[in-house]
Every structure is written in structure tokens, then in C-alpha cells.
Amino acid sequence: MYKFLVIILFVLSVGVFGWTMHSYATSGEEIVSKRLQGPSGEDVIVGLDKSMSPVRIIFNVKSEMHAQDTTNPAYKYDVKLLDPVGTIVGSEARTQSEKKSDQGPSFERNNQNHIITTVNVDIDGDYRLQWKISPKKAKITGIGYSVRKNVEGMNIPFMLLAGGCFVLGWIVLIFGRR
């Protein structure tokens, strides 16, 4: 009985977490989707206005790599969103790592969507996206970005529910054996 309850709690936790993250990333309406060229550059996002707030910027990276270690630094990226007067209104810089899916070296193809920022449009006009991506162990096969308008925030009650189910699953697992 305890094993069945533990499995249900863990599956519920993962399901609610995944559904909440998917809803967060895909909320609103996509207004721009564009492929980018080169390891660095700048692109103009034309015509953002206050009625589109909040706006979410998603950076997409397609890569291939030969994963040999348990954790492999794939690439490093730095993306900035600037408003029409040149002020940075959102940014993210980090190194993406990939884990092997099984024993021994393996060839991995990945398509990662990185949520860079969610901002309110305070100044109507053309915003600029600046990017720089540096491969580590991966070969970058494509980069791009998308802009979504009128997005929703994170559903905190559902995230708390997912966390609560996860913790409760561990409690039942530990104390159910006694």
C-alpha cells in the first residue's frame, strides 16, 4: 500500500511540475520567431508596446555533442534585451551542461529553450536583442529566439502543490517502512 502511495505522490509531483512549467513557457501569444546567424550579434524586435505587457523572451539553441563525462559543459550564452533608449531591461548569462543518457560515450542532439526574461514594456518602440554564444564541447547547429506577448506568471500554488507531493512522497517512503 505504501509503495503504491509513494508512486502516486511522485508521479503527481512530476506531472503537476511539468504541466506548470509548460504552461509558463507557452502562455501568451507568439509575436516573433526568428533564426539568428553567427555566434554573436544584435537583432531588432520591432514595435513592442505597453498593450503587449508582460513580454517573454525565449532563446533557442540546437546543438550536437559527443557526451563522455557525467556532466558536459555544452555551451555558454549571454543574451541581453535593451529598450529603445539602450537600457538593459533583461538578461541572462550561463553555461548549459548536458548529462549522458546512458553508460559510455554517446552522441547527443539537443534543442533547448532558455527563458531569458519576462518584462513589462514601459517604452513603446523597437527593442534590441544582443546575443553571444560560445561552444564548449557542443557544436551549435542553430540559434534563434521568440517573443511572446501577454504572458502569465508562474502558477505558485501549483508549484507548491508539486513540491508538497514530492516531500510527502519522501515522508511516506521513509516512515512507511517502520
Rank of each mutant, 00 (worst) to 15 (best):
K76F: 03
L160S: 15
D126F: 01
K132R: 15
R94P: 04
A93K: 08
K137F: 12
M1A: 14
D83E: 03
I174W: 01
V44G: 07
F17H: 08
V79E: 11
K76W: 01
W170E: 00
V79Y: 02
F175R: 05
F59L: 11
F4G: 04
S40R: 13
R35M: 09
N155D: 15
P73F: 05
V32R: 07
M159W: 03
N155I: 04
A93F: 01
Y127C: 05
L160V: 14
I45R: 03
G41W: 05
L82G: 00
L9I: 05
G142D: 02
F158K: 13
L129T: 01
T71G: 06
V16C: 10
V151S: 05
R56N: 15
G144W: 07
N60P: 00
V61T: 14
H22V: 09
I174H: 01
A25D: 06
A67K: 02
D83I: 04
K137C: 04
R56D: 13
I156R: 14
N155P: 02
K50R: 11
S13C: 11
K136P: 07
L160Y: 05
V85A: 10
S23P: 01
M65R: 06
G86K: 11
G90W: 07
V119A: 06
M21T: 15
K62N: 11
K139W: 00
G144S: 07
K100R: 15
S146W: 02
S33M: 10
Q37N: 10
T70H: 08
A74M: 08
S97Q: 15
D69P: 03
L5G: 05
Y77H: 12
A67D: 00
M65N: 06
V151F: 08
I58Y: 00
V55S: 08
V32K: 10
I7L: 14
M154N: 05
N150I: 15
I143L: 02
P135Q: 09
R109H: 15
K139E: 10
I57R: 04
K136Q: 13
S97L: 07
L82I: 14
L48Q: 09
G142E: 01
R109V: 14
G15Y: 08
R148N: 15
V14W: 01
V147E: 12
G164N: 10
D49S: 06
L82P: 00
L5A: 15
A93Q: 12
G164Q: 09
R109L: 14
N155S: 15
D126G: 10
I143R: 02
D43N: 15
